[in-house]
Design a protein around this nucleic acid. Structure first.
Length: 264
DNA sequence: ATGGCCCGTAGAACGGGA
């Protein structure tokens, strides 16, 4: 079973790239962030033709998340929950569904803008509420009362200096602050494992590059998109990598997809 | 040194992204 996450920065603009990517990479689950679409405009018909069933939650202009499930392997997303029941939020950043025996959580963490800002405070509270909610899920899953958990998405957190192209420049900055990093490792404390770091990886592997300053050409990026599996799934993780290819296309998203593979 | 791009909503710039 293969799962992936991709911040597409407008599914309207990127739909052709998503369809092409799925044709070349027929993953079982694809989590999307920043769809930036009203629900009535979500391209469920085009995705269904491509063999994918979708659960989605959008709004105009900003945010928006979706879980795509390959119909012939994992069927239709079930028990869909939009948002975090423990956090009142007008922004569509979170959607969960049971797919292929897994509880898949697709998350678009707040950006936070600048450390100490109001948006930063919202980011921390949003993450705290997610840790609180998923913590209970992990405990229930550990007792066999819930399906095992996979958390995929744009975390807007670079967990370690090796996830940053220029750690000195970014030290203490948004995505790299101690507050944000500590929260990333609170997910780890729940028993979740960063699939990417289960394997030897080449240095300077990033999932986002600024559109400006020729960020991609210079590989001036951050690794802020992640796939985490709970403790029961960790032994099944076979691979995890970042696919830089779509970032090379004309009119790319500024994020690249991350893919993980689970064995039986 | 600064900011340099892209997207949606507009129907011109601006907010937001990271």
């Amino acid at each position: 079973m293969k799962l992936a996450t991709w911040n597409v920065n407008s599914l309207k603009v990127r739909l052709p790239q998503v369809l092409d990517w799925l044709a070349a990479n027929p993953v079982d689950v694809l989590c999307l962030q920043e769809t930036k679409l009203r629900d009535e405009n979500f391209p469920k018909g085009a995705l269904a033709e491509a063999g994918y069933e979708a659960a989605f939650a959008g709004q105009p202009t900003y945010n928006g998340v979706a879980i795509l499930a390959r119909r012939d392997t994992v069927g239709v997303p079930a028990d869909v929950i939009v948002g975090n029941p423990r956090f009142e939020d007008a922004q569509q950043r979170l959607i969960s569904a049971t797919v292929g025996g897994l509880r898949v959580v697709c998350a678009y963490f707040p950006n936070g803008q600048a450390v100490g800002s109001e948006k930063f405070d919202y980011k921390l509270r949003w993450i705290d509420a997610l840790i609180d909610w998923l913590g209970d899920h992990c405990r229930a899953a550990g007792a066999g009362a819930q399906p095992p958990l996979a958390l995929l998405g744009d975390f807007n957190v670079a967990p370690e200096d090796r996830d940053v192209h220029d750690p000195e420049k970014w030290a203490g900055q948004i995505h790299c602050s101690d507050e944000e990093r500590a929260r990333f490792f609170r997910f780890v404390d729940l028993g979740l494992v960063d699939a990417f770091r289960m394997f030897d990886q080449p240095p300077k592997q990033f999932s986002w590059w600024d559109y400006r300053m020729m960020g991609f050409r210079r590989n001036a990026g951050l690794r802020i998109d992640h796939i985490l599996f709970d403790a029961s799934l960790a032994p099944r993780v076979r691979a995890c990598s970042i696919d830089r290819e779509p970032r090379k296309l004309e009119q790319p998203s500024d994020h690249a997809p991350v893919i993980a593979e689970l064995g039986d």
